[in-house]
Amino acid sequence: MVKTIKYCVISFGALLLLWQILVTVADISPALFPPPTKVVAAFGELLKHGLKGSSSDVALMGHIGISMARFLTGYILAVVTAILAGLILGCLPRAFAYVNPVIQLIRPIAPVAWMPFIVLWFGIGDVPAVVIIFIAGFFPVLLSTVAAVQNVDVTYRKVAQNFGLSKMETVRKIIFPAAFTQIIHSLRLALGTSWIFLVSGEMVGAQSGLGFLVMDAKNCMRPDALLAVMITIGIIGFLLDTCIRLLEGVVKCI
């Protein structure tokens, strides 16, 4: 833990230093690529009262809160439905064989491509971002749940059969826990992907959130604020990943 923190501090410190040196030595115009000092200042401005000239008067924390709420709604919905569907499809290999081609067809389409439809069906506001996150998180969890269920040791199934467990009991007591270590790995992957697509989801139509801030900083022609928002997105993604990694560690210990 202490070591991880050491690596983080040194890594980020070196990045900042390199950045500052590059900007100073190459004499890059702040309009093209602002130095860290300006970004920090913009960060302070965002934290205090939001961007000057912005269409929203919410400070950074407010936008983070809104984004997190959308993110968690979409992500949790995706995870729950994907695990349930995965358990069902994993137990019915025949059905999965028919459904799989369609999944494979839809999966490689970037969630944002659905945006026009989503706006048509759900309007603008919170829902489009939630739907985008849902699509981004759903497929990785679904496919890995199906694979995990199909990989469950045959002996476990035989034991369940032998002791006369019903189908539901087998899923609840044997298959789900046996598959869970593999599933949690996909939860982590899905968390990363979903977080990436949150920003795209909020860049269209939304009037709040981190994705909106990206567009807002662009519209206000504030590269320093843009970078500050980008870094915020990165930090939150990093923290989310750390959380789920710790959770993964706890689960693996059981």
Binding site: T155, Y156, N162, F163, G164, K173, P177
Partner: peptide, 15 residues
């Protein structure tokens, strides 16, 4: 299979 005759496996099948 039923619980009146239980099978024990080489790889134990413990959860």
């Amino acid at each position: 299979p039923c619980a009146e005759y239980v099978t024990i496996f080489q790889n134990y099948g413990l959860l």
